[in-house]
Write a protein that binds this DNA or RNA. Structure first.
Length: 565
RNA sequence: GCCCCCGUAGCUCAGGUGGAUAGAGCAUCUGCCUUCUAAGCAGAUGGCCACAGGUUCGAGUCCUGUCGGGGGUACCA
């Protein structure tokens, strides 16, 4: 599709003596094919030519003569619309897809650049809750999206394994813990201790003091505290690994907060040397009052560090280590202020690269309207959701396609598809309210809908049983729906690019739903495997391109595309 | 109190930098499986885009205010 945009922008650039890139960017796809395929909005011309947009459009219409790939140039009000010759469209788009296969949509536009992403970041000693799902799947998807555009993408799981909460846990364990119970059911036991600590702390504030004291000891290297912490860590990462394996996610680095322990003193020294710190209420802070923000706390009055200290050390370390062109934090919107403070401090330290740091925020997940709180113990364990989703998928498979081989695996793929896709069902800024009904819905705008579409086309390919021919006669694909599908297919690279620029995998999810919906409408109405050999060949060429694109898109979202379901 | 985000169909959400008739899905109702997987398709119902002003040729989109919801606001992350 870019081919045609380039041809048109070249044509207009020559005629108007304007910048080609500028025109290229302003071109848009028409709403519904009624007005041709590609539109040039003439609003920008009114100031230049001192004419109304619609006047400019109609003048351009009479001046321009269409190149061979364009059948029609027409002014419609303020828009100048171009109609692409169907033959060219079909050959160009479908040809590209079949040639590039799983690379369709990829580009080397950003090769040579490095992006570092901080995502997932669950806390040890707690179950992997549904609250951490968003960061995990958005980050994973963005890694794949950036890589598809040529970036070297480095994924870091910034595990929450340091901080006051572990002091609390060590304290709780020292009071009520039991090694036997811990070994038998580590996460369950730790979770109970955590909840109990917060419950009892409400009546007895002494506990909070004990927790803080334990964290300070931990930071000082106290043997008892460190040993316990190591155990918690080991148990937790084993649990996380199980979840990540299931989701098909791996990280380049699993360097949690504790990794930056030995890097904090140097950063604090640097801040002091740059005269940025001061003592306020016995705590070591960077004052940000003149920037309208509360101070950034580096050390508590008991000398213990805070997460801002660790994030600061982490950012500086990452730049030294990876010399990134971009650093993304896939972290909930409630930490917005924290990142503003963090970035401001880095800026004050004189590091220009802070301009390339971005907090990619997202809304909360609420459970059927209720706030979820780890402290109070009402948490939805991700594995339970995945289990339930798989179970439901299995039930449907047994009902609809009982003879399928390895049904457990297919059910797992579908179940995961539903849960993961649900995370992309709205722009990331929105809060998501989790409900079992919606999470386990396989109808309509869902992952299984896309997977089902993919499986049906795969089934067609099996029935067809031959290799897809590339030298089809484009004139055989003359149905309006066929042209429309080609246009939609041609916009896939653009969708990926937009998704990357906006750090918004949702864009791809939307694109795929539209593609699948257009395909399903076509498939319902038009028979693909017809008697006429060359017609069947041509339709398979189209339909198979849809499958390739669906699979590539699902891959970018981190969702599997089974060939049967 | 102050700062940030949000308010579009009964519900969940789309509507890239203002621009061509406000769109999907779910739910409800009606059709479509002797032909490529009905996890599908076609259709119907459903909207003073929270409210009030303003900017302009043009506002769901931008500005101000009001109301309603969410988040943040120094020793949690």
């Amino acid at each position: 599709m870019e081919t045609f945009l380039k041809i048109i922008s070249q044509l207009l650039a020559t005629e108007l003596e304007m910048n080609k890139e500028e025109i290229y960017c302003s071109l848009q796809f028409t709403p519904d094919g009624k007005f041709g395929d590609i539109a040039f909005p003439c609003f920008v011309l009114s100031a230049r030519l001192k004419k109304s947009p619609s006047q400019s459009a109609s003048e351009l219409e009479s001046k321009l003569s269409p190149p061979p790939e364009i059948t029609e140039i027409r002014a419609e009000g303020p828009y100048l619309n171009f109609k692409v010759k169907p033959d060219s469209l079909i050959k160009e788009v479908l040809g590209t897809i079949h040639r590039e296969q799983s690379d369709y949509g990829c580009s080397d536009e950003c090769s040579g650049q490095t992006v570092v992403m901080d995502y997932s970041s669950p806390n040890i000693a707690k179950p992997f809750g549904i609250g951490h799902l968003r960061s995990t799947v958005i980050g994973h998807s963005l890694i794949r999206i950036y890589r598809s555009q040529g970036y070297k993408a480095i994924g870091i799981n910034h595990i929450g394994d340091w901080g006051t909460q572990f002091g609390k846990l060590i304290y709780a364990f020292s009071q009520w813990g039991d090694s036997g119970r811990l070994a038998a059911n580590p996460i369950g036991e730790l979770f109970e201790l955590y909840v109990r600590f917060h419950r009892e702390a409400e009546a007895n504030p002494e506990l909070e003091r004990g927790g803080r004291e334990c964290f300070r000891k931990l930071e000082e290297g106290d043997q008892y505290a460190v040993n316990l912490w190591k155990q918690f860590h080991l148990y937790s990462t084993a649990e996380f690994d199980r979840v990540y394996k299931r989701l098909g996610i791996s990280f380049d680095y699993q360097t949690g907060e504790s990794f930056y322990n030995d890097k904090m003193p140097g950063v604090i020294e640097e801040l002091k040397a740059k005269n940025l710190t001061k003592l306020s209420q016995d705590a070591l802070v960077v004052d940000l009052e003149q920037y309208g923000m509360p101070p950034c706390l580096l050390k508590k009055k008991d000398e213990a560090t805070l997460y801002a200290t660790r994030d600061l050390a982490a950012a500086i370390y990452r730049f030294k280590e990876f010399a990134f062109d971009k650093l993304l934090y896939i972290v909930g919107a409630e930490q917005k202020l924290h990142f503003q403070q963090l970035f401001k401090v880095i800026e004050l330290m004189g590091y220009g690269w802070v301009a390339n740091c971005l907090h990619v925020d997202f809304g909360r997940i609420k459970f059927e309207g209720e706030e979820m709180s780890t402290r109070k113990g009402n948490i939805i364990v991700l594995e339970e959701v995945l289990d339930e989703s798989q179970r439901l998928a299995l039930r449907i498979i047994e009902d609809k396609n009982p003879d399928i081989e390895n049904r457990e695996q297919v059910a797992e793929d579908i179940g995961l598809g539903a849960v993961i896709f649900a995370q992309f069902s709205s722009r990331r800024g929105k809060n998501i309210s989790f409900s079992w009904d919606e999470a386990l819905n396989f109808d309509g705008q869902t992952g299984p809908y896309l997977q089902y579409t993919h499986a049906r086309i795969s089934s067609l390919e099996r029935k067809y049983g031959k290799d897809i021919q590339a030298n089809i006669d484009p004139a055989l694909l003359s149905d309006q729906a066929e042209i429309k599908l080609c246009k939609q297919l041609g916009q896939f690279p653009l969708a990926i690019n937009t998704a990357m620029r906006e750090n918004e995998p949702f864009i791809i999810a939307c694109y795929l739903l539209l593609l699948a919906s257009e395909f399903n409408g076509y498939y319902q109405r038009v028979r693909v495997l017809v008697e006429d050999k060359s017609l069947a060949e041509a339709r398979m060429f189209l339909v198979s391109a849809v499958r390739i694109t669906l699979r590539n898109g699902l891959y970018l979202l981190g969702i599997k595309a089974p060939v049967k379901m």
